[in-house]
Structures are given as C-alpha cells and as structure tokens.
Design a binder for these strands. Structure first.
Lengths: 155, 155
DNA sequence: CACCTAACTGCATGCGAGTTGCAATAACCA
DNA sequence: TGGTTATTGCAACTCGCATGCAGTTAGGTG
C-alpha cells in the first residue's frame, strides 16, 4: 500500500536512533529489522527490497524478502522510510530524511537526477497555476528527456 | 511547442483505416487484431490489456491476453497505439491520436485528469528552466493532490 | 479456386514484484 | 527464568507481462 503523503517524517540520525524510535512505538527490534536499517543507512541512494534482502550484494547478511517488505511497510508507517517509483523497475526505498529529494528521470538514457525540492518550486507553481494540483516529485518523478540526450539528438 | 515525442504517431480515423495501415506495412489482419482495434475504438479512455482481453466486459468477444499484449506492442511499434502508467495499476493503452492528452493523477483520491498538452506548456517551460529536461506527461503523469482534496483538507 | 508458407494465435509455462497464511522462533516483560 | 505475543521464514499465491511452441490461418501464387 502506498503511504499517503503528509505522513509524518521521522528523522533518525543513526541505527540506534531508529531502534529507539521502534521501541518507543512498542515495536520489537529483531535481527531482520536491524538488517533493513543497516542497509538503508549504508546506502547513498534508494534501494529495492530485493537488494536489501540480498544483503546489498554481500556487504550485509541476506534476509527474507517477505520480511523485508513487511518491515519496510511498517517503517513507512512510522515515517522512517519512503519509497519512490523511478521508471519501470521495482519500488526503491530510502530513509525519509535522505529522501527529502525529488527526482527527474530521462526516458532516453534512463538516468536519474535527484534534486532539492526547492529547485522544483517553480514547476510546482506552474502545475498549480495550470491545474490546481499540488505536485510532488518525490514519489513519482518528472519524466522526460535530459539535456544531454536532447543535445545528442541535435535538438 | 507541444511535441508529443516517442516515435511517429500514426493517425487512423477508423478500424478500416487501421486495417489498411496494417496491410500497408505487410502485417496480417487477424481476428485477434481486429478485436483489439474494436476495443480501442470503442473506448473513450485508456484501457488495460486485461480489459481488452475480457472483451470490454461483454460488449466484444473475449480474446487471449498474450495475443492482446503482442498486438498492442506491434501497434505501438507502428505508432498506432500508446500506453500510459497511471499510478500503481497496470499499463493503459489508447489510440495514439486519442492519447494526445497528458495526465495528472491525485494520490489522495486516485482521480485522473486528462488535459490538452498546451495546458501544461507552462509546466514544461518551468521544468526546462529548472533542469534542462523536456518533460512529457503523457507516458508518466504529474502526481500530486488535486484541488478538491486540498480543499477538503482545509489547505 | 486450391494450395502453400510464413505470420499469427492460443495455450501453457515462466518470471519478477509483491502479498499472505501459518507454524516456529525469539523479543520483551514480569 | 518463563510466558506471551510480535515477528520471522518458508511456501504458496496473485498480478502484470513475456515467451516457447505446436497448431491455425491470412493472403499471395498458380
């Protein structure tokens, strides 16, 4: 299920921080949960559930995907984690504060560009003007063609 | 300028038109292909492959979903058909000219708003200014919260 | 018209992403 | 230390979509 926007974002600076947050909410701190947290804190960009379950390709013990999904979901419920849909692949998960960013993806070269929300405030204003919508690009990105692909096509 | 990119768009006004187009390209006109065309021409909004295979819920004979996918793909290759990804559901297909539109989806109420590309040219300009990207919202929509959901939340 | 052949179908089967049921395990509390 | 119950881990399942293959058929040819 998609966690609705506006959900509280819980900032945690470390794994211990997150562990305290879990206990404060009456949740248990299991080995599987710790592994998910380790993966999220170790990553510098959003991760798929599979990659977390695979142990980030060897740097962390592997775990069960079903548990990973369940834990990512509970973490999202707590506001600890958010997920993004970049293009056609699986959902990608990141710590909520890491993931303050918004995304653009190029459908020619599949590159992903992350940026600070402020950079897209002009876009948000234009969307609001055109439609009354308040747009967010942190859950579903802006899709189009990046500058270099356009240049490469001599446009 | 509103350039609906993504390959040549072949405009066909009727099923017969589409059939001619197929034959002109050396493709055969089978019963299964006709059914897909019938569904697309009968629809007033983008359809899932499953709905086409189900015969639009009884108004058209059912067909095999694998063939539907294959034919939608070949039709896309010809520029006859395009598909959209609206939210989390399956891909939705429409005739290329019907689908000259671009989309906004509200992630609070899941409503979909279609609009003419020109309406979002201001947004495109803002995206270009902010990132150098040339954005399109006919394949992946703008996602956010619609005016009524924002009003309902007293925002 | 009938025939031939490659394009196409339809079924089965598979795959990737994500979910769920359930018995076994293990956190946390007393 | 022991009890209780949240959580795990496995298997099995759904859903969207793709593919291998034997059988069918569109449509050109004689």
């Amino acid at each position: 299920m998609t966690v609705a926007r506006g959900g509280p974002t819980t900032h945690v600076a470390s794994i211990d921080d997150a562990v305290h947050e879990l206990r404060a909410r009456g949740l248990r701190v299991s080995a599987a949960r710790r592994l998910v947290l380790e993966a999220l804190f170790a990553a510098d960009s959003p991760l798929s559930a599979k990659r977390i379950a695979d142990g980030l390709g060897g740097t962390i013990p592997r775990s069960d995907v079903a548990s990973v999904y369940r834990n990512l979901e509970t973490f999202e419920g707590l506001g600890l984690v958010r997920h993004v849909h970049l293009g056609h692949g699986p959902s990608l998960y990141a710590l909520a504060q890491t993931h303050g960013r918004e995304y653009l993806v190029c459908e020619s070269c599949d590159s992903v560009q992350a940026c600070e929300p402020a950079q897209l405030d002009g876009v948000r204003a234009a969307v609001h003007l055109a439609s009354g919508y308040e747009a967010r690009f942190d859950h579903f990105p802006i899709v189009g063609r990046c500058a270099s692909c356009r240049a490469a096509d001599g446009e």
